[in-house]
């Protein structure tokens, strides 16, 4: 994952990676990562949990727009199956020039 992210970033495409095991990500850090302490195969969460998936994606984009140095690993602080997720507020997704500033991740 880290190697793929680095190759893509080196070609001029900015990347953000999800991580489910921080220790693996720390060995080959991608330019920007959001760590979610979820089981393998569940980087976006539980099957069918739309609000959860979109919240993980929103936080990933927050890292994309807020990270200031390569190797940033932001901890989402989300607990597996112990969070309640609200339906997406798309206004909190307006990242970049002319939109809202990246919302804090927690």
């Amino acid at each position: 994952m880290g190697l793929a992210a680095r190759a893509v970033e080196a070609a001029g495409v900015a990347t953000v990676a999800l991580s489910v095991v921080r220790e693996i990500t720390e060995k080959t850090p991608p330019p920007r990562a959001l760590f979610v302490r979820f089981p393998f195969g569940h980087a976006l969460g539980e099957p069918g949990n739309r609000a959860q998936h979109l919240e993980v994606l929103r936080r990933a984009f927050t890292v994309l727009f807020s990270a200031r140095e390569p190797g940033t690993i932001e901890d989402a602080g989300l607990r597996w199956r112990r969070e309640r997720y609200a339906d997406p507020d798309w206004e909190a997704w307006r990242f970049g020039r002319g939109g809202v500033k990246p919302a804090p991740t927690r």
Binding site: M1, A4, V13, A14, L18, F40, A43
Partner: peptide
Amino acid sequence: VDYALLVPA
């Protein structure tokens, strides 16, 4: 492409 999202297994 401007941005890439990487998702692990």
